[in-house]
Simulated assay, not measured.
Amino acid sequence: MQFDLILTGGRVIDPSQNLDAVADVAFAGGKVARVAPSIAPTPGAEVRNVAGHIVTPGLIDLHTHVYVHGTSLGIDADEFCRSSGVTTAVDTGSAGPGNFMGFRKHVIEKSEARILAYLHVSHAGIYGFSDRVMVGESEEMRLMNPIDAVAVADANRDVIVGIKVRVGKHASGTSGTAPLDVALQVAEEVGMPLMAHIDHPPPSYEEVVERLRPGDVLTHAFRPFPNAPVTPQGRVKQVVLAARERGVLFDIGHGKGSFAFRTARAMLANGFMPDTISSDVHVLCINGPAFDQVTTLSKFLCLGVPLPEVIRATTVNAAMALKRPELGSLRPGSPGDATILSIEEGRFDYVDVVGEHLEGDRRIVSDAVVLAGKWWHAREGASFGRA
């Protein structure tokens, strides 16, 4: 086989194959071609020496907002993916059925990085989100558009992976669970998972979680009080344990207001690891407290989660949540996406959404990205020899 690119000498961590070893990774025709202890280069193959670095499947950020220029919260997907080692950015409800085709035509189809989307059940998605205007799109029930949401989701199954709804005091005012119930009907009709946002009550954490089905995703799962998943005594709420038992997935969705170290420590102390770790990056948190995906991952590393489990939560677990098992893996035949990381040691300041600081001794850094089997981006200052 003729290879296009070979990454040689790196520590390959691929939880989809329970692989953690020094190995070479070869790509051909835009896909992963081979993973082996040593791969002989073929004529014309580009060889990159990644010794001393970590090679993972392309990172998946399950919660982003990348409808740039189309919504006030959108950031540039390619710029974010290059700097954060992400090869698949999942937009979670920036667009609804009334404006999804603009998102598809002007952003998704033009992006080099892969963009998948949860379609918002509200007509125009998250339209009133800025530092001056904050209008919860789920507060006005007249904006719920289940009929068109079904049609748009059905017509765009190549890029739409689920239905999104935001409920809580900030997102839905006093509408309670009514928007969630509409969104669940849409998700059921099209046979897709639902992702539910939760903020301050109403509704309560319990009311939201108990409605979710196997495969549905609760994002902002480790949020602070109120509507935290733990009791004042530091135990995981019974409704949360029951939801996990029946197959509900718990996603971090850090963002501006949805991740607290106190909650995370309690959940992890109870052995409750999130299914997926995501940044919820948007214009109001990209300069802090979320910053990017690798910073969000670093927080869990510094909270004591082993590196392979951190990688699992942003690769194979995210792919399973998306029902796209071909992603998040370096198995031969998988899409040719990979992320090259390193772990820096030192003293690093991390902050959560309530202002608590954590001094960590390690930081995950994105050094380079392979996209569709080609060397796509390398961090300035990072050196990789070419043979």
Rank of each mutant, 00 (worst) to 15 (best):
P308L: 06
G304V: 12
Y205V: 11
M1T: 10
C81N: 09
D76W: 04
N49M: 10
S366Y: 09
I343G: 05
L19G: 01
V32Q: 07
T8F: 06
H69Y: 14
V55A: 01
I54V: 11
T42G: 09
Y350V: 03
H357F: 11
C302R: 12
A378H: 05
N227T: 12
P43D: 14
A151Q: 11
V50L: 12
Q233T: 15
V90D: 00
Q238L: 14
D361W: 09
G381M: 14
I54L: 12
I115D: 04
G58M: 03
A124N: 15
S329P: 00
R223M: 07
E137F: 08
R104S: 03
S122C: 15
H69P: 08
G373S: 08
A21H: 14
K237E: 13
L301D: 00
K110E: 12
G247H: 05
G288N: 08
R114S: 02
A321F: 04
S122H: 12
Q17C: 03
E109F: 13
H220I: 03
R213V: 03
F300T: 01
T263G: 02
T339I: 01
A51S: 15
E344S: 12
D91Q: 04
A95Y: 10
D349I: 15
T314R: 04
S204N: 07
V159G: 00
E344D: 12
E109K: 10
R82N: 11
I54P: 06
E356R: 03
S298D: 04
A228Y: 13
E345F: 13
G70V: 13
S130C: 14
E188W: 03
D76I: 11
H197D: 02
G102H: 15
C302T: 10
P37N: 04
L119Q: 05
G128R: 03
P224G: 09
G288R: 11
A33R: 05
Q233I: 11
T42Y: 06
A319Q: 05
H377C: 09
L62Q: 10
L322T: 00
H65D: 02
E189R: 08
T276A: 01
R223E: 01
V354W: 10
D61K: 00
E112H: 09
N99T: 12
S342Y: 12
S334G: 07
E326S: 09
H357C: 15
A183P: 06
I126R: 04
P193K: 02
F259K: 02
Y350T: 01
R223Y: 10
D131S: 11
D14N: 05
F27G: 03
T71D: 06
